[in-house]
């Protein structure tokens, strides 16, 4: 089962016929994801990758029963795509697009909050429930089935954590890439809460980075809700203040959003914090007794 996506998810791809959409939809289908079609305005009625193309998300919901969407639309139009999906009744909206203007996300996030949906991203690798559904751009083979959940702001660091988990004799239930932008749909705390309530997840790996207050918020929630062990890592211990490190959200603004401050509060709230990214897998193995 896992959380957010599973083998029963009916997935559509927004930006289906573009280069990125085509490449990753192909990979998702090969993985076994139930891709029921895609949306490209003015190409409705045609087929692509043997699946129907719709003009609107509403058509995809009505005609193919879509409940999950993955967005590869270019940055200028991505916030619009998020709002279209939310308005059409899509339940899980996963936005991969990187480089969306911040003011667009202020609007899209507020709009999505008025609808009955969960937004993941933007600027994220997506969500994978191992051996059921890959709704993202991650290399599927890394995520062997198991009972460890991952929440991460970063793409390749998620793959790294999954790989170490598998090499340490465990596997992955669901990995959620929440994204590295200043405004994202689902926060660290919300994603951790989903996995905490998932009966098929025994332990959680929480990977954050400098900037913002989401890890501290998650840690404070975990202090009272720690029913499974959580291993945490914060990237950017060596990042200087005031410099943006790749991700739009990864910038140290004040004393509270440095890696050291986040690691301290996480440890105080009972999270097993590792200093080295090389220790994520083996630490999880030792805390859950593998």
């Amino acid at each position: 089962m896992g959380v957010l996506v599973n083998k029963d998810s009916k997935v559509i791809v927004q930006g289906f016929t573009g280069t990125e959409g085509t490449f990753h939809a192909t990979q998702m289908i090969e993985y076994g994801t139930n891709v029921v079609g895609g949306v490209t305005p003015n190409k409705g009625g045609t087929t692509h990758l043997d699946r129907p193309v719709f003009n609107t998300v509403k058509d995809a919901v009505n005609q193919a029963g879509a409940d999950t969407s993955i967005i590869f639309v270019p940055p200028a139009f991505a916030a619009d795509a998020i709002m279209e999906a939310a308005d059409a009744g899509i339940k899980v909206i996963i936005c991969i697009t990187e480089g969306i203007p911040v003011q667009d996300m202020v609007k899209a996030k507020a709009f999505a909050a008025t609808k009955n949906c969960t937004l993941i991203g933007p600027n994220c690798p997506g969500v994978i429930t191992a051996e059921e559904a890959k709704v993202g751009i991650m290399p599927g083979f890394v995520f062997k089935k198991g009972r460890i959940g991952i929440v991460s702001k970063s793409g390749t660091l998620t793959y790294e954590a999954a790989d170490q988990t598998v090499k340490s004799g465990m596997g992955i239930s669901t990995a959620i890439g929440i994204g590295g932008d200043p405004i994202i749909g689902t926060t660290t705390k919300e994603a951790v809460e989903l996995l905490m309530n998932d009966p098929e997840t025994d332990g959680i790996i929480m990977i954050g980075e400098i900037g913002g207050g989401m890890e501290a918020e998650a840690a404070k929630w975990l202090k009272d809700n720690m029913r499974k062990p959580v291993v945490g890592f914060i990237a950017g211990q060596t990042a200087p203040a005031g410099r943006r490190m790749g991700h739009a959200g990864a910038i140290v603004g004040g004393a509270d959003d440095t890696a050291a401050a986040k690691m301290k509060i996480m440890a105080e709230c009972g999270i097993h914090v590792v200093a080295s990214p090389a220790d994520i897998g083996k630490t999880m193995a030792s805390v859950i007794g593998k």
Partner: peptide, 17 residues
């Protein structure tokens, strides 16, 4: 030299350690 911003920061941290 790393692919991905998060892994790049994590690699920097590892160098320090």
């Amino acid at each position: 030299m790393v692919n991905g911003a998060g892994l790049a920061m994590a690699t920097m941290d590892m160098i320090k350690l």
